[in-house]
Design a protein around this nucleic acid. Structure first.
Lengths: 179, 179
DNA sequence: TGGCTTTTTTGACTTTTGTCAAAGACTTTT
DNA sequence: AAAAGTCTTTGACAAAAGTCAAAAAAGCCA
């Protein structure tokens, strides 16, 4: 309990009036860099990916599978143009939560502040785990952990994207996989 | 703006009734693993370190210098026994925020929920930056970044602690430093 | 000051991961 | 089914970081 996924139902129930469901096609860009991203996306079905370019290379910052959340955090939180792009890796069904709508809704329903804060804390703990895995685990272990978290990873995500998420090169990942 | 340090004054003003200032000596243990840590620590002066043991090795999870915050996040958020220890690396003056006090105070002062949530978001963004530095930067670059953030690092923190925070061995850090 | 402890550095060697280049395997389109 | 494009694997080599052991330096204290 207390994982991000556990908040899904609570959020769906409590924030229904401001949740907008949208459908995105595989390959579709949901958000482009250099623009403000005022949305948090809750994936009801499908896979989204946040990425950015560093030294010309495409780097995956985050995956969101069914039940998980994703946004361009620099932009959603600070309301600044984002360095992240977000795209759909599969046909996806997604709740979009607009930042301004959320703030207004929270102003009108202050009892939901606590839930929102708890949700923020849950995604904080998820990041913390990712840091640990980066500090400690070998490339191979990190790959296995990610696979364990989502068995379908390989169906929708290509190797280069996975490798950059793990902080390694595609060649290294390929060799890991070859055992 | 928007960094964790920027919240310091706001927190000091708005949460004054529940802030308890304590003094810790260099080397003093502030929290031990396997116990619930119900406190968030705001460092007014000094340096604290959160660490844990993995395969018998002491791993630094986080440093908090003057103006920064630290806790055992697994424990503070989930109210479970923590795997982290927290110690003072220098004589330190610290605001201690009790979790239950905080929740009660927020219940009584719901207008402070937003500030609390923004603070949580700010520390989230800090983690995100740390992930990026781990994914991208070489050991040397990460070390230089940390040094830039705190020039006094070397005065209060020994090499092994810094190395484990950066995800490298002490020998490697020593060689980096020797240029 | 001199000895004891802790911390940091160095050396030799191994393992892991990266780089560049090319080949192979899959997909998609026509 | 052939061609074009994309994605993945492999090879040879280079660079980065880890391991183990020991020496040097710094800090502590009696």
């Amino acid at each position: 309990m207390n994982s991000v996924k556990d908040f899904r139902l609570q959020i769906a129930e409590n924030f229904a009036p401001i949740l907008v469901e949208k459908y995105f096609q595989k390959g579709e860009t949901i958000h482009s860099a250099d623009r403000v991203c005022p949305y948090l996306f809750l994936v009801n079905e499908g896979v989204l990916r946040a990425f950015y370019f560093k030294d010309g290379k495409d780097i995956t910052a985050h995956f969101a599978f069914t039940g998980e959340a994703i946004t361009a955090p620099d932009s959603f939180i600070l309301e600044k143009p984002s360095k992240y792009h977000i795209e759909a890796l599969e046909d996806s069904r997604v709740f979009c939560v607009n930042n301004a709508d959320l703030e207004n809704y929270l102003d009108d329903n202050p009892h939901l502040e606590k839930l929102t804060r708890k949700f923020t804390q849950a995604i904080y703990l998820e990041l913390l785990e990712r840091i640990e895995s980066l500090v400690f685990l070998s490339a191979k272990e990190r790959y296995e952990l990610l696979l364990k978290r989502n068995r379908n990873l390989l169906l929708s995500v290509n190797l280069g994207h996975i490798a950059s998420y793990l902080g390694i090169t595609q060649e290294t990942l390929s060799r890991i996989r070859a055992k």
